[in-house]
């Protein structure tokens, strides 16, 4: 078993603090993400898991502490640089509702490629490939409203993978799914990530989902706890 403590981390968070008004959502969180590894961020609801993920992805900036990606401090980048980083290097899967309802599934998956300047035909061809890899190419021409929750999540995973990102951020990706569909999404996500040596930050409170990770970090009351058993 790998504990992921060897080698240089691709990404790390150190003593990250973040508060929303009176709520101290993060109160000193640390996390190292190693290349090609899956880290599970666990903890009770409201403990600050999503906030940690948002800080690491540069969606929000921490009040204090540092988040570095490949040695670069995210807080030194401006908004458009961070947007570009998210667009080009990261992929995202959320619990639900992330697909644009008007676009067909294949168009949804092609969207990041189109934004990166790829033409429509090649982008959609690549998107179709990705959908096939996630075993949902049969719903390519349907709109998100017309597919099942599990299919929709797999389309979302396809979208997060289509740009071959270095890091995939998944916030409760199976939260709205039943066990079977949840397992399926996790298996495909982790397989695809391993295939491209992408790292995954997997926020979940379900141990069975966390079991797909290489190592775990527990957040409680905004603090990460050292993985005692791993030591």
């Amino acid at each position: 078993m790998t504990t992921g403590t060897t080698g240089e981390p691709i990404m790390s968070a150190r003593a990250v603090r973040k508060s929303f008004g009176p709520t101290q959502a993060l109160d000193g969180a640390d996390l190292d993400l190693h290349p090609g590894q899956v880290v599970a961020v666990m903890g009770p609801s409201g403990s600050g898991k999503s906030t940690l993920l948002h800080c690491m992805a540069g969606i929000i900036l921490p009040d204090d502490g540092s988040v570095t990606y490949q040695g670069r401090e995210l807080s030194t980048m401006d908004d458009s640089a961070r947007s570009a980083l998210r667009r080009n290097e990261f992929g995202f899967v959320f619990q639900f509702g992330q697909l644009v309802p008007e676009l067909t599934c294949v168009e949804n998956v092609a969207l990041p490629l189109r934004l990166a300047g790829m033409g429509r035909k090649p982008a959609e061809a690549k998107a179709t490939d990705q959908l096939a890899r996630l075993e949902v190419d049969d719903v390519a021409e349907k709109r998100p409203g017309d597919v099942s929750g599990g299919q929709g999540q797999r389309v979302a995973v396809a979208r997060s993978l289509v740009t071959t990102p270095k890091v995939i951020f998944a916030d409760e990706p199976t939260g709205a799914l039943d066990s079977l569909n949840g397992e399926r999404v996790m298996r495909l996500l982790v397989d695809a990530a391993k295939a491209t040596s992408a790292s995954v930050v997997l926020v979940t409170h379900e141990p069975r989902v966390a079991a797909y990770s290489d190592y775990e970090v527990v957040v409680r009351d905004g603090k990460t706890r050292a993985a005692v058993g791993a030591a």
């Binding site: 992805a57 947007s83 995202f92 934004l115």
Partner: peptide, 18 residues
């Protein structure tokens, strides 16, 4: 109506301009 999708798009780096 599309708050969630918009937020998700923005989070994944779609520029506000688009």
């Amino acid at each position: 109506e599309r708050r969630r999708a918009i937020a998700a798009l923005f989070a994944s780096g779609v520029p506000r301009g688009v």
